[in-house]
Amino acid sequence: MKQTTQTIGERISLTVDPNDNVATLLDSAETLRRAAGMDISPAIPFGHKFALIPIPRGAQIIKYGVIIGTATADIAAGEHVHVHNIA
């Protein structure tokens, strides 16, 4: 299994496959928002996912390069991706 670690800012690290449409937050949302220039909700906790691009309802959620679920609602870029909007 290949893992690509992308470091943004000082110590933020996201493990992503090039095909992923979600990324994992491994530092505070505020730090990431500043560093990445994306509108990430500050309420998303450590270890949770956000959408890298807009994901329409019914589209596949891809992490580690594999389909981990399907969007049950339209998800905006930067929005929290979890059990409330994927299955």
Partner: peptide, 27 residues
Amino acid sequence: YRGVNPTRENIEAGLSTLIEKTMGAVC
């Protein structure tokens, strides 16, 4: 089985589906 596996604590920690948990474990 969501809530059983991934467990409630897995979900709280940010894992949403069993396949997501699987891929993290398999490495």
